[in-house]
């Protein structure tokens, strides 16, 4: 068992999958000799060569569009978008093509590809290196959207994504890349896409979250324990399709639910999760469903104090969790 940080887990999983299957290849901006701007492909160029670890021109629509063509032919491209903020030129290819190919051809044509992109803020990235983009894609059936929170989950979910027969968007919170370490088995394992994970059991309140805020909520839960309240933390891990059963089970267990995400509140993932709870178990609730989210402004500002104001934190999570526990 090796201890890896988050981005090392990405890299080692890509290495494992490329060794396992000659059809798996990586393409994106600066993924070759440089190894990616975050080092997610460091060393892969030396092992697999420039064709399978391919530097693309600076063209996001092409990274995805070429990836779609290559997937249609039968290879397994793992496309890297350097920052999730730059995925929008590829939006048409993802929504109009990748998501609809199986549906419109009745599975005659399919797109088994992965699109990886670092997202999220708190790294002094300003408006265009900090955004959370997952909610733009979770409204589109035909896609799968995965957001891991730990190195262990990265490996199991990225391996699952590479082997998945449908297009998978794999969003990695860049604030976790070097901040989070964990044990990652060297053996080959897969975590099923579409399954949430209870990261902490509890009996007083339920917190439903994903990505970096999983760690904020776990830290807050440890503090809350000292104050006499027990919090269950459910990590969604996959945002499309959502694990409805796990959401409802977790909500029923405590009857008090807080949903936490860094992305803005309006039309965010929390809205869907809370609608599922309202549909399935409203009468098991002891308090209104709460949401703690990023503010509804266009993007995250650059200057330190404004960025800190925008970002969630263990303290903000603790306050919201405490308020709910006391309700």
């Amino acid at each position: 068992m090796a201890v890896l940080n988050f981005v090392e887990a990405v890299r080692e999983t890509l290495r494992q999958e490329m060794r396992r299957d000659r059809d798996v290849w990586v393409v994106g901006e600066d993924v070759g000799k440089k190894g990616g701007v975050f080092g997610a492909t460091l060393g892969l160029f030396d092992e697999f060569g420039g064709e399978r670890v391919q530097d693309s021109p600076l063209t996001e629509s092409a990274i995805v569009g070429v990836g779609i063509g290559a997937a249609l032919y039968g290879t397994k491209p793992v496309c890297e978008i350097q920052f999730a903020d730059f995925i929008f030129p590829a939006f048409n290819q993802i929504i109009s093509e990748a998501a609809k190919m199986r549906y419109r051809s009745n599975s005659a044509w399919t797109v088994p590809m992965v699109i990886r992109a670092p997202f999220g803020g708190g790294v002094h990235g300003g408006l265009y290196h900090s955004q959370s983009v997952e909610q733009y894609f979770t409204n589109t059936a035909g896609l799968k959207v995965v957001v891991p929170s730990t190195p262990y989950d990265v490996k199991g979910l990225l391996a699952a994504a590479v082997r998945d027969p449908d297009p998978v968007l794999f969003f990695e919170h860049k604030g976790l890349y070097r901040a989070i370490k964990g044990e990652v088995p060297e053996s080959d394992y897969v975590i099923p896409i579409g399954k949430a994970d209870m990261k902490r059991d509890g009996s007083d309140i339920t917190v439903i979250t994903y990505g970096k805020t999983v760690h904020f909520c776990l830290e807050a839960a440890a503090q809350l324990e000292k104050e006499g309240y027990s919090a269950l933390v459910l990590d969604l891990r996959t945002l499309l399709p959502l694990d409805r059963e796990a959401i409802v089970t977790a909500a029923r267990k405590t009857g008090k639910v807080l949903i936490v995400h860094e992305a803005g509140k309006t039309h965010g993932i929390g809205a869907e999760v809370s609608a599922i709870i309202a549909e399935e178990c409203l009468f098991d609730l002891d308090a209104p469903v709460q949401r703690l989210c990023g503010p509804d402004v266009p993007a995250m500002p650059y200057a330190g104090p404004m960025e800190k104001f925008f970002m969630l934190s263990p303290e903000k999570c603790l306050e919201a969790m405490r308020n709910l526990a006391r309700f």
Binding site: G69, T75, Q93, K100
Partner: peptide
């Protein structure tokens, strides 16, 4: 599909994958 020109990139991807194979 109906959005025009998307298929040109698919052709390039097919060409790329065919060459890899």
């Amino acid at each position: 599909s109906s959005p025009v020109t998307t298929q040109l990139l698919h052709a390039v991807g097919i060409g790329q994958a065919a060459r890899m194979r």
